[in-house]
Amino acid sequence: MEMRSKKVPSSPSSAHPCADLRTAYHDCFNRWYTEKFSKGQWDKEECVSEWEKYRSCLAQHLEDKNLSRLLLEAEAAVYLSREDPKRTDSNSL
């Protein structure tokens, strides 16, 4: 019986190359969600510039094939939804 003690790489969140951009986006998003969206102010999309920076970092650094594929699919979906004239990209804080 093989008892190889190969450890699962423990990749703490802070070690990821996009960790700072992720924190910046999640902080902005959480603030927007808690203070605005969940209280009924949904007309303005916020944190767009934080999101763009974080997403482009992920596109370069996401190692797992499954996750990269999902990121690409999500990008394609967003590209299609740009047809929506109501989308307000300029509302980034």
């Binding site: 699962v8 423990s10 990749s11 703490p12 969140s13 990821h16 996009c18 992720r22 986006y25 999640h26 998003f29 969600y33 969206f37 009924g40 949904w42 007309d43 303005k44 999309e45 999101w51 974080y54 992920l58 996401l62 996750l67 999902l70 990121l71 999500a74 990008e75 979906a77 967003v78 939804s81 109501k86 989308r87 307000t88």
Partner: peptide, 27 residues
């Protein structure tokens, strides 16, 4: 839980519908 990322987000500002996808890496 070893890692969490946001992979996509979309706001439908007409109807107040927010959609997002996250990846969660677990051991």
């Amino acid at each position: 839980i070893t890692d969490v990322h946001t992979l996509s987000r979309h706001l439908d500002s007409n109807n107040g519908v927010f959609t997002t996808t996250r990846s969660i890496t677990v051991k």
